[in-house]
Design a protein around this nucleic acid. Structure first.
Lengths: 255, 255
DNA sequence: ACCACAGGTTCATATAATGAACCGACAACG
DNA sequence: CGTTGTCGGTTCATTATATGAACCTGTGGT
């Protein structure tokens, strides 16, 4: 493994649970030598990818990432377009909506929007890792990903996030078939209790899914009418998003 | 220079003018060996920091940057708080507002907001490099930065961006004194013709400036009344932003 | 047919990464 | 009040890794 890859893997250790970490923690989690980690963190710091807190000596992600992300947005306006689409989805459904992207076998939420219609709402965090088998977004992605990928996930260990999490591979396969037929996947309380999520895949230029668009509502509010509304809106929104970022739906995606 | 630093410096070659680049261009700009650049770009690609276009083989910044930026936002909600502040600034002034951050001797815009009040407005791009001596933001930063830094900038070459750009060090020093007195810096047409910008510094936890908040209006709309409004609003907004990100104004900053 | 330039690859060489041991500072503890 | 453990950071001989000149291969222009 190259030095650069190792250094960048250090950035991957940060998460919501670990927004800042000391040298020892980074060393432990990475399994690398302390001196190595120290030198790499120093280089990352010089480049602005991490910064060190004055009082504590803990590291956290740096502001250069914001600059590069803004530049990436200038090249591919995924976030800004998504935010428009999410805002619309929220307004018409009255529920929380979010967008997630697949990278390196993980599905991560990137941005979200809330509706102010109800006092209660499903809360979201950006940069959270979604489960493939237990979320609407994950199922929507799997349903249209390369067949091997879905099977790989289904044959692996399927975490039971809540008592309601579906972990039976056959029933999950049936859910994927259903999603392929309708273009929309559902998950009820599989990832977080009392959350009913609908999702549709977003496609890239090569007609493969790159992520998903989802609407998450409390199960208590899910009526047949709301369901129908969400399904209609999420489908047109996902389609619009795919098109606006230069992607194409595959022929197999139901119109 | 370490390998990691070299690899990360490749990311710094991307800009609005160069949103995507081929291997040769990266090699030329970086001054490194082609094989070296190739291997580094491959590692960066594997980590999701850059991606390669199918048809063309050009590289562009990758989506992992969005994920890490979202995580950075979770640690320090600079962008999200800024966007709220900018939105308010736009609404009360009716003009374009933006926020910029200093990193490695460069001031870079990170986010902006437009007002819909007027048909014409000052247009902005995120991740654009601002001139220290020719923008309100730059002057606001310099006025409260370490004294040595301002002198270093003033003694260096001062680019003439427009015919109106002030390049006389003594008159710039006077402008900085004025900014120190009032807490607000101004630049009229110094960076882009017909743009009048007001700016106030944003401070970090150590009472040193980390960036600036600015309002940019067409010179033709700049009346004494608008000026007074902008000055009042930008000052309270910058103060609010500083406080909400855990920063502190130095004692020298006029209240 | 030719040239120039593109992206990508090879392999001997040289340079930069590595890791065990070490340092000083700090906090907890009997 | 010394002992112990952990922290961030540093050193330097050893070794693994990065490097770069040269070489493919494909493409577009003339």
């Amino acid at each position: 493994m190259g030095t650069v890859t190792k250094a960048l893997s250090l950035l991957g250790l940060f998460s919501h649970a670990r927004l800042e970490m000391g040298l020892s923690e980074l060393t432990r989690l990475s399994g690398m030598n302390k001196a190595t980690v120290y030198r790499m963190m120093s280089e990352l710091q010089a480049a602005g990818f991490v910064e060190q807190l004055d009082g504590d000596r803990a590291y956290r992600l740096g502001s250069e990432l914001l600059r590069l992300a803004a530049l990436r947005e200038a090249a591919v306006p995924l976030l800004s377009v998504s935010r428009e689409v999410l805002r619309h989805l929220c307004e018409v459904t009255g529920e929380t909506s979010h967008m997630s992207l697949q990278r390196d076998g993980r599905l991560t939420t990137l941005t979200h929007a809330y509706s102010s219609r109800h006092g209660t709402r499903v809360a979201m965090e950006d940069a959270e890792i979604l489960s493939f088998h237990a979320t609407g977004s994950g199922l929507a992605y799997l349903a249209f990903a390369a067949p091997g990928f879905a099977e790989e996930v289904l044959s692996g260990p399927l975490t039971r996030h809540t008592p309601e999490t579906e972990t039976n591979p056959d029933r999950l396969r049936a859910a994927l078939d259903e999603a392929r037929r309708t273009g929309i996947a559902e998950s009820v309380g599989g990832f977080e209790a009392d959350v009913h999520s609908h999702a549709a895949p977003i496609f890239g230029p090569d007609q493969t899914p790159i992520g998903a668009l989802a609407v998450a509502a409390p199960v208590s509010r899910m009526t047949p009418e709301l369901k129908a509304l969400i399904r209609a809106e999420i489908k047109s929104s996902a389609l619009a998003l795919t098109q606006r970022i230069g992607g194409f739906c595959p022929a197999s995606y139901p119109a």
